[in-house]
């Protein structure tokens, strides 16, 4: 069965969605990702959707679910690289993906995760996300 690869980079997980996902594949990703978060005690998840040509309400819901579930598992989710046409369409569709953090690209998303983790830990850096 096809799966979307999840890469581990330090305390973060990186998912790059490059295929036109059918719904089951998206559900599998949600399962796999939550499992990996708990296995690896990851503190952050980056989902790169720069190659996605559309985000419809189903994918929107999956992204929202992933964000909520990972928060419960103590990891922050950042969705990165949404294309302008996709963003405009989502807004017209009526979805604002409230509660999901976003960033322009993987690099900026990573920086956002680091700074927010740093803040929430009161700067004590017990999670060595900086390394």
């Amino acid at each position: 069965m096809e799966r979307i690869a999840i890469l581990q980079i330090g305390h973060f997980l990186l998912v790059t969605i490059q295929v036109d996902m059918h719904d089951r594949l998206a559900m599998t990703l949600q399962d796999d990702l939550t499992n990996r978060i708990s296995q690896t005690s990851a503190r952050g998840v980056l989902i790169d959707i720069s190659a996605l040509e559309i985000v419809d309400s189903f994918i929107g819901r999956i992204l929202g679910n992933i964000a909520k579930m990972s928060r419960i598992l103590d990891a922050e989710t950042v969705v990165v690289g949404m294309q302008p046409a996709v963003a405009i369409t989502l807004v017209e569709l009526g979805l604002s993906l409230k509660g999901i953090r976003t960033s322009l690209n993987v690099e900026k998303g990573m920086a956002l995760l680091r700074s927010s983790l740093g803040d929430s830990e009161g700067g004590s850096m017990d999670g060595d996300a900086e390394k």
Binding site: M82, V86, I88, V91, S96, L97, S103
Partner: peptide, 12 residues
């Protein structure tokens, strides 16, 4: 509001 929301979705 739409413009602001779309920009936010992209991370700005």
């Amino acid at each position: 509001l739409k413009t602001v929301t779309a920009a936010r979705l992209m991370g700005a």
